[in-house]
């Protein structure tokens, strides 16, 4: 990045998360490591089922219980390992120092409570505030996220707002306590491009004003390019590539990253030309091999030992890490 290195706020080390199912224990996140720096945005990109959301849920300790478990690894937030802190302590961190923006604003909000009350709930949970002061702050939050006539809106119910407005409310709730880290899980996927542009700009402005760090989960490489400082590409429960955003787009090294980048239609592409594809689809969790998981879709032959032995992440240039399968690492 060139500038002074900013300090690491969150560091995930070798995280392994599994679910107990009827088909046995399935590992959804398999040894994931990355770091989020203060004031910066880390993007996590990958297709459905690659473990992006489970990673977020593991950090927040919101895995479905009793099936979901963190089996291994550390989630170091400001020096504390969130994977092992008591549930009670986690409750004072969640929503306060780390908070989350969810994809679907209709299901993330409670339909039977007024919007103002839902923001007050977070505020009074973590601060010693009188009901009046909390309400006042809730209205200020609504104003900050760009909701017109916030005093009136605070008394309304979620169904009275449009999708874009609801997502602003979800953001207001997430930011109410001035968190240091916000995890945004597909925050604009359910929205139109025009509204997406508004919301991304809002997150960006708030990040600049409040100095928070953002971990942005998305499948949209355009959103990644526009908002992130660093990117992790996940595939089948693992990080296959990790790099500063410009480096990743200019010099993708893993076959999966290259496939993703070349399969999106570009505005400046040749009209009606054949698009690059990645054959097949993400394997089911029950079919995962210990070795290179992209082997089946890579279209290239892998030696048997590459399917059995896990390849480590290697730093091929400054801050650019790639899962070092000799067949899938190219360029």
């Amino acid at each position: 990045m060139g500038e002074v290195e900013s300090k690491i706020l969150l560091e995930v080390r070798d995280l392994v998360t599994a679910f107990d199912t009827d088909a046995g224990q399935l590992t959804a996140v398999d040894g994931v490591s990355f770091a989020v720096r203060r004031g910066r945005t880390l993007g996590i990109v990958g297709e459905s089922g690659c473990g992006k959301s489970v990673t977020a849920m593991s950090i927040m300790r919101l895995l479905p219980q009793p099936m979901g478990k963190i089996l291994k690894g550390e989630v170091l937030f400001d020096g504390r390992n969130l994977a092992t802190v008591p549930a009670e302590d986690m409750r004072s961190i969640r929503g306060n120092r780390i908070s989350m923006i969810f994809q679907e604003p209709m299901t993330a909000l409670n339909p039977v409570h007024r919007i103002g009350k839902q923001i007050c709930e977070v505020l009074t949970q973590h601060n010693d505030l009188s009901p009046d002061d909390a309400w006042q702050q809730a209205v200020e939050m609504l104003d900050k996220v760009g909701i017109p006539s916030p005093e009136i809106r605070a008394t309304e119910y979620p169904h009275q707002l449009s999708g874009g407005m609801r997502q602003r409310v979800v953001i207001a709730i997430a930011l109410a306590c001035g968190p240091e880290l916000v995890i945004a899980d597909e925050p604009t996927t359910a929205l139109d491009v025009t509204i997406q542009a508004q919301i991304l700009q809002l997150i960006n402005n708030l990040q600049r004003d409040l100095g928070m760090s953002v971990m942005l989960i998305t499948h949209d490489l355009g959103v990644i390019a526009e908002t992130c400082d660093e990117v992790c590409v996940m595939y089948a429960g693992r990080v296959v590539e990790r790099a500063p955003v410009k480096e990743l787009f200019a010099n993708p090294r893993h076959a999966y990253t290259q496939g993703l980048l070349s399969s999106i239609p570009r505005l400046n592409g040749t009209p009606k030309s054949e698009l690059q594809t990645i054959d097949g689809m993400v394997p089911a969790l029950s079919e995962l091999k210990p070795g290179c998981r992209f082997a089946l879709r890579s279209g290239r032959e892998h030696a048997p030992e590459l399917l059995v032995e896990r390849q480590t992440l290697k730093e091929i240039s400054t801050d650019h890490w790639v899962e070092a399968c000799p067949v899938c690492t190219r360029g």
Partner: peptide, 25 residues
Amino acid sequence: KALISAIPVPDPTHVPDRVILEGDV
């Protein structure tokens, strides 16, 4: 114009020249 400018471009070196629309449809 606003609709086209709102498309996120998958290129981190691209500087968006964006017309942000107010409100919803």
